[in-house]
Design a protein around this nucleic acid. Structure first.
Lengths: 136, 136
DNA sequence: GTGTTTGCAAAGTGTTTGCAATTTA
DNA sequence: TAAATTGCAAACACTTTGCAAACAC
C-alpha cells in the first residue's frame, strides 16, 4: 500500500549519494536543487532557511555543503578569499564575478576552447576554473 | 657630489609608485623583485624576512603586499579560500595550481584564446583568471 | 538499539585595524 | 616638524571541530 511521500526524488538523490535524508539535508537540498541553477554561500542558505522558519545551524550548513560537494551534487567555486560559493550546476562551465555586488554569473563559452590548455608534465588536470572579473 | 646609494632601482621603483622607500618596503621589494618571477603568500614572505634576520611584522607585510598590488607592482591570485597569493609577474598569464602541495605555477597559453570570452552586457572585463587545478 | 547526524559554543585560520611610537623627507 | 609608516595586539570574518543530545533506520 502506498503512503503519500513528499520530496521522494530529493530523498532518492540523497540516498544515492550515501547521505541519510535528514530533515536538515532535505531542507537544504530542496532550497538548492528545486529552483534551477543557483550560486550560494553558506550565509545565503542560512538566511533563506531562517526566513522560512526552518532551523538549521550554520555549522550544519557548512558540513552539508561540503558533503554535497564530495558527493558531486555541488561544485565549489573560489572567487574571493572571503566568499566561498557553491554552484548547483556541476557541469563544465565558467563564471563572471561582479566584485562590487559579489554576484556570480554563468558564462557561455565553447568548451573546446579549453583544448588549448597544456597539461602539465606528470600531472592530471582535475578542474579548470575561468573567472572573468568585471568592474561594476 | 655623489654618495653610494644601494638599491637605487628598487628605491626608484617604490618612489614612482608613490611609496616612500622605508626599510621594510625595501626589504620586501628586494625579496620580491630581485629574484625573477615569484608567487608568494604573506606567510612565505614573513618567513623569508625572519630567516634573514630582517624585522618586518606580518601586519606590515599584508599592508605592503596590498599597496604593491594597488600600485601595479603585484597581481593578486585567488586560488583557495585560505591561501592568498601575490604574483610578481603582472602581465597577462594564467596558472596551474597543485592543490596538495599548494604550489602555483605559470601556464603558457596563447592569449588570443581569451578572445572567445564574451563580454557581459553593460560591464567591462577587469581581469581574467584561469586556474587549472591538478591532482597530485 | 546502534550508528549517524545535529547544534552549540569554542577554537582555528588568515587577514585587517586602531593607535601609540617611530621613521622619512 | 609634519606627515607617513610601522608594530603590536586586538578585532574580524569565515570556517571547522568536539562533544553531548537528538535522530534515522
Amino acid at each position: 500500500m502506498n503512503v503519500i511521500r513528499p520530496f521522494t526524488s530529493t530523498v532518492e538523490r540523497l540516498r544515492s549519494a550515501g547521505l541519510r535524508p535528514t530533515r536538515q539535508r532535505l531542507a537544504l537540498a530542496k532550497a538548492l536543487f528545486e529552483n534551477g541553477d543557483r550560486h550560494v554561500t553558506a550565509e545565503i542558505l542560512h538566511g533563506e532557511t531562517q526566513a522560512k522558519g526552518i532551523r538549521v545551524s550554520l555549522a550544519t550548513i557548512y558540513n552539508t555543503l561540503h558533503q554535497f560537494t564530495e558527493a558531486g551534487l555541488l561544485r565549489e567555486i573560489v572567487v574571493d578569499a572571503q566568499r566561498c560559493y557553491f554552484d548547483t550546476n556541476t557541469s563544465e562551465h565558467h563564471h563572471y564575478y561582479h566584485e562590487k555586488s559579489g554576484m556570480l554569473e554563468d558564462m557561455d563559452i565553447a568548451s573546446d576552447m579549453l583544448a588549448a590548455i597544456p597539461t602539465p608534465k606528470g600531472k592530471k588536470i582535475k578542474q579548470v576554473d575561468i573567472i572573468v572579473r568585471t568592474e561594476d
